[in-house]
Amino acid sequence: MPGGRTIVIFGGARGIGAAVATRFAAADDRVFVGDVLDASPEVFAGAPQGNEPVVMKCDVGRPGDIATMFDRALDGGRKLDVVFNNVGIARYGEVDTLSLDDWRLTLDVNLTAQFLACKRAVTEMKRTGGGVIINTASILGHASQKTTAAYAASKAAVMALTRTVAIDHAKEGIRCVSISPGTIDTPLVQIAAATFRDRDPDDLKREWAALHPLNRLGTPKEVAETVFFLASPGAGFITGADILIDGGIRSELYA
């Protein structure tokens, strides 16, 4: 049986979230994953037998699902050590065509869900002596693209939320950081590429890769290693910060 920390991950059924869940499980941590999607067993192939992540159905657009996720993960008096908010959806459109429903849905999932998870996490961590909250922002919180008004606004707000949680609760032993991935080779990137129906998705992915100084897309495993470090004692002096995991794309003004 695992003897490590208790980790709660929202959005862990594939891509970055699944890689992070596997990384923590491999370190003997007990991992609870909530996702609106079903998780195929192979996404956690790197987890040791007997300590596979526990997956629960959770729609973060429903506040009750977030609460239930925490209740089940902490059942039996477990101490909450780490929360990784890895949620995000994208609805595309210029501001004059983007619907109010799509705007609200994007902020509900990308921002409000992370606020609610932070709220519950802080409550639990204050009671037990601290912990780490890691929120998922995006490179698009730093620099935008066309038709991404809702997504970019939500992710920029995640960074502001993170800073405030960090300074509000530092004296209670709670660290809060955010990560801003660049273009990571995940199912969400596949969906984004397929959205541009007049272009071949694989050609678009190659084009996006070439925009990065490292000349490739990032991998979920690389993001997972960063998240694992941020949750470790070795990152104990990091709080309120946003960590770019972007292959250098934000560092270059002109390609």
Results as ranks from 00 to 15, higher is better:
102 D>L: 07
102 D>T: 04
104 R>V: 11
104 R>T: 15
105 L>E: 15
106 T>E: 11
107 L>P: 03
108 D>C: 01
108 D>Y: 04
110 N>L: 03
111 L>S: 10
111 L>R: 02
112 T>M: 05
112 T>I: 07
114 Q>E: 13
116 L>H: 09
117 A>K: 06
117 A>F: 10
118 C>F: 03
118 C>S: 14
120 R>W: 02
121 A>V: 09
121 A>D: 10
121 A>I: 07
125 M>Y: 03
125 M>W: 03
126 K>G: 01
127 R>H: 06
127 R>V: 07
128 T>N: 09
128 T>C: 09
129 G>T: 06
129 G>L: 07
129 G>C: 06
129 G>F: 09
130 G>I: 04
130 G>T: 05
130 G>A: 05
132 V>W: 07
135 N>S: 06
137 A>G: 11
139 I>M: 15
139 I>E: 14
141 G>E: 11
142 H>Y: 12
143 A>K: 15
144 S>Y: 05
145 Q>W: 10
147 T>F: 08
148 T>M: 14
148 T>E: 12
150 A>H: 08
152 A>Q: 08
154 S>C: 07
157 A>P: 02
158 V>F: 07
159 M>S: 11
159 M>K: 10
160 A>W: 04
161 L>M: 13
162 T>L: 04
164 T>W: 02
164 T>Y: 08
165 V>F: 03
167 I>N: 10
167 I>K: 13
168 D>K: 06
169 H>W: 13
169 H>F: 15
